[in-house]
Design a protein around this nucleic acid. Structure first.
Lengths: 210, 210
DNA sequence: CACAGGTGTTACCGGTCAGTAACTAAACCC
DNA sequence: GGGTTTAGTTACTGACCGGTAACACCTGTG
């Protein structure tokens, strides 16, 4: 059935504390091969440590999984903060930046979709510690998008935000079963079209560039 | 890490030949719990048979997985045939029917997304026998949608088909991490809006009901 | 009746899984 | 220095994994 076993080293897993190396190694392996396909022993070795140390920092593999997802959620949060800093007072610009960055990521070779969404597929048990993280993250993501669409003065912001959200979520999952096939530029066209369809004709949302 | 083990019986797994029961049991268990989470022994027991008989019909678990996905792909194909029979000469009607059926399914309680897409998440190995099935299926689905949009005389049929495809694919995957939350009616609104946006103003696509 | 093919049963293989015990070595802090 | 915390090492548990061997059975069909 295939497993992973014996991964000698992993990029940036050699700095800092064992704990950080463990999470870094787990992130890489979980994302690339799937959570259930990777054993704790493999993770420990890739992190240049051992299973005992891993279990001194995480009470179970499931907790390590939760931490892996938690850190990804944090990264997403800081990405939104960065976009806000790059487009201060311009919510539509922030949405566009998110659109562009995500579309670009979809077509990158090593893309395997949203790690949180993938985890939800792999871990259907509703009481798994990872599920709280996943649900909170997705709800926050959606709320942020709605808030930005509303702040941009677009019509029916909830509907637009959901359209954009589902579009990109669909693109990320589809890229795994069909490959990217130049999806990124089409995604941008679709996104812009959706935004335009929600723009008041009186120009309240400001002029649309391009 | 949680597994499945000991599933006494499974709905319609008690008819016909052992082979059919095995595939039926595997379908249920793979979809509900994930492919890697279910062992062959569990499948055999749920199918009221044993591991040896399973391996007399399938050379490996991976081959059983491929057959599981193949049968689902076939069901999808016959669903398209049914829609064609229900809306003869009306490609837009077929697209709308697909939209409605899929939207309705997304919000059903036992929904766990597209089984083929989930399998792609769980089985990233590019040489896995299931991947051929998945890629062929998704490409066919997309092609059919494009062909219908084109036959309906809609503008930029490829782009519209892809929008609809990604929208529903995103909805199915999102439902797993956020729950349905009345997504179905919103999906229909979004879909109709997209179709309308691709409808020529000269009415070449026929009048839009509602 | 004989024979054949599909099925059931049991026991087994080697390997891997998550998780732990007991002990040693190193780093740290006062 | 001494004591504490953290990390590494080895070996282990019990369970489960996918897959197989050998043999008994049962139900057809000629």
């Amino acid at each position: 059935m295939s497993a992973v076993g014996k991964v000698v080293s992993i990029g940036k897993c050699d700095g800092n504390s064992p704990r950080e190396r463990i999470v870094a190694a787990a992130s890489e392996l979980f994302y690339r091969h799937g959570i259930r396909a990777v054993g704790v022993e493999t993770i420990a070795e890739a992190a240049k440590t051992n299973k005992m140390t891993l279990y001194r920092h995480f009470s179970s593999k499931d907790e390590l999984v939760a931490e892996y997802l938690r850190q990804l959620a944090d990264k997403s949060t800081s990405a939104w903060a960065r976009r806000e800093a790059e487009h201060p007072g311009d919510p539509l610009g922030q949405v566009r930046a998110w659109l562009q960055e995500t579309a670009a990521r979809v077509t990158k070779g090593d893309e395997r979709g949203c790690a949180l969404a993938n985890a939800a597929v792999e871990l259907p048990e509703k009481d798994h510690p990872a599920r709280r993280v996943i649900e909170t993250f997705k709800a926050g993501q959606r709320a942020r998008l709605i808030q930005l669409c509303a702040a941009a003065g677009l019509e029916e912001p909830e509907l637009l935000a959901e359209e954009l959200f589902l579009l990109l979520e669909g693109a990320r999952v589809t890229a795994q079963s069909m490959g990217p096939r130049g999806l990124d530029e089409r995604l941008l066209r679709m996104g812009e079209r959706m935004i335009r369809a929600h723009t008041r004709c009186d120009g309240a949302a400001g002029p649309l560039q391009q």
